[in-house]
Amino acid sequence: MSSSTDNRYPTRSRPVEPKPESHTRTNPTVDPEKKSRDQRKQLRRGTWRDAFSRRNLADTLLTGYLPILIALLIIVLPLAWMISSSFKPVNEIVTLEPSFLPNDPTLSNYETVDRRIPLLQVFQNSVIVTTVGSTIKVLLAITTAYALVFIRVPGANIIFLGILVALMVPPEVSMLPNFMTIEALGGRDTLWGIILPGLGTAFGTFLLRQHFKSLPKELFEAADLDGAGHFRKLFQIAVPVSMPAIATVTLVTVVNEWNSFLWPLIITDTRETMTLPVALNQLRSVEDDVASYGILMAGAVLVIVPMLIIFACLQRYIVAGLTQGAVK
């Protein structure tokens, strides 16, 4: 994200991120504020020059970079410590004079994790649950949002209100009855038992509905004149012009599914069906002395680093999705 984009879309009444899904952005000809590449480069150079001019230099360093540096240290150091410690042999973990980097880097912590939990199996479970769950959730969100906006039925607003209320119900509240339901259906210790109760999606539906409502009506008029049905309008018009919004919903869903802990913890007991966070919780209860922190750090790396990579590459969509007004 270029630094100039921050100012171009001032948010008004609602404290949310500048939306990346704004349709004008995909179409340069209708965006009056779009700056040319050169202009933007000039602007950025101007920022550099302002920040490091003699007049501002002290201010930039003392009230700008120094606090940023402190904040970054607080955020980044624990993660760096995790990665570094995961490669340390036991004697460097229990030492009273630890060094930041491992003196004698080793993979033995990862090997121990693999011995304690069937790592490949667990990783595969997490990947399956995340991809299958997210795919279905996003599809359901798209079709539901489309129906709410474009298929006129009496009472659609009440249905939408019902979905909004569902957005407010935390998983802890529905945990016990869902446990009874899934157990009765024979879904304990199965992957579908992990996936099924989370499939009803309120968040994605809400976000995509807001987006579909913002689409210009003219987009659909030509299709109406051609006599296109709703399926064609959805998949040939609404979905293609909404890719940024759909990407946002998808990524937020993927992050949530991957990190999900409470429900998989309750519904799985066997190692064959556990997801990674549940397995790590079990690892923690097995490896509970001072010498095992290297092993636990290796486990933490396995669950944290994949999301860090996804976030680093696609942060714009994820930040936008997660900072949307959660309750409208």
Partner: peptide, 12 residues
Amino acid sequence: VLSGVGVALVWM
């Protein structure tokens, strides 16, 4: 966006 379980292990 990081797993709460992973974060908790790091801080432990």
